[in-house]
């Protein structure tokens, strides 16, 4: 197995001892099949036990290990060493406050997710005993893509608008609202609309599309945002120009 010596430049910051973040370089013998997370684990186990970062599944599904790798938002468990030169810079996710080393504060993101009512608000009441809500594979396909978000927040780190306007609901939260709006079982769109069609909702998006480019699960939040904008525009026209038409 081929081995390469990598210079891993890692942003370090301990709020109890550091006045500002600094970069620390570790020399790590890496196997070519490794991901950046393996290199960080090597550092933690062999070179410096004080390095802090989040990780768990090592298979790109738990969403813990989002970080900036050479300036791009990536999952450390899916960023292969073989795709990088011998020097790799690792920093915490952009647009989030740094708590410690590569660990950021994510409460704002969680609060935004919660704000869009991301749960099924059924069209009709149906007891469990009455069985499932029928949903054809075609109906499932309409929203399935938007269920694949792992909440890794790479899209927020990539979004220039979230960086400028922290109140912006952001790509993942809006895509999640759209996921439920598009679900044939759901009747809660009007309730979600109050949040996502507001000023801090879809209209903040300047459609740069960076969110979809960095998404490791191909959720395409930018596409969801555009669909929400179009639907909201139609709502507006119906409401203001054709008030006799029911939404």
């Amino acid at each position: 197995m081929s081995e390469r010596q990598i210079q891993l430049e890692v942003l370090r910051y301990n709020p109890e001892t550091d006045s500002e973040p600094r970069l620390q370089t570790y020399s790590v013998p890496c196997l070519n099949e490794w991901v950046v997370l393996d290199a960080l684990n090597y550092v933690k186990d062999n070179l410096d036990t004080t390095l802090s970062y989040r990780w768990s599944c090592h298979m790109a599904v738990c969403g813990s290990c989002g970080m900036m790798i050479n300036g791009e938002p990536k999952l450390a468990c899916k960023a292969f060493i073989r795709e990088y030169a011998d020097q790799i810079r690792v920093e915490p996710l952009a647009n989030f406050p740094i708590e410690r080393d590569l660990v950021t504060a994510v409460e704002d993101f969680i609060a935004k997710l919660a704000s869009v009512k991301p749960y099924l608000i059924p069209k009709e009441d149906k007891p469990i005993e009455a069985g499932e809500f029928k949903q054809t594979p075609t109906e499932l396909k309409k929203y399935k893509q938007y269920t694949l978000c792992i909440n890794c927040m790479l899209c927020y780190a990539a979004c220039p608008q979230y960086g400028l306007v922290p109140e912006f609901l952001g790509p993942a939260a809006i895509a999640l609202a759209h996921r439920y709006n598009q679900d044939s079982r759901d009747g809660g769109r009007d309730q979600r609309q109050e949040v996502i069609a507001s000023h801090e909702g879809v209209w903040e998006c300047s459609f740069v599309g960076a969110c979809s480019e960095v998404c490791p699960k191909h959720v395409d939040p930018a596409g969801a945002l555009q669909q929400v904008k179009i639907a909201s525009t139609i709502d507006w026209y119906k409401e203001h120009l054709m008030p006799w038409v029911k939404k």
């Binding site: 749960y119 809500f133 054809t136 929203y143």
Partner: peptide
Amino acid sequence: PKELMQLEHWGCPWSREPDGSV
């Protein structure tokens, strides 16, 4: 079955048969 059906009612995107059943 009750618990899995409950998840269906909470929106779990279970894979479906052509007729829309789970």
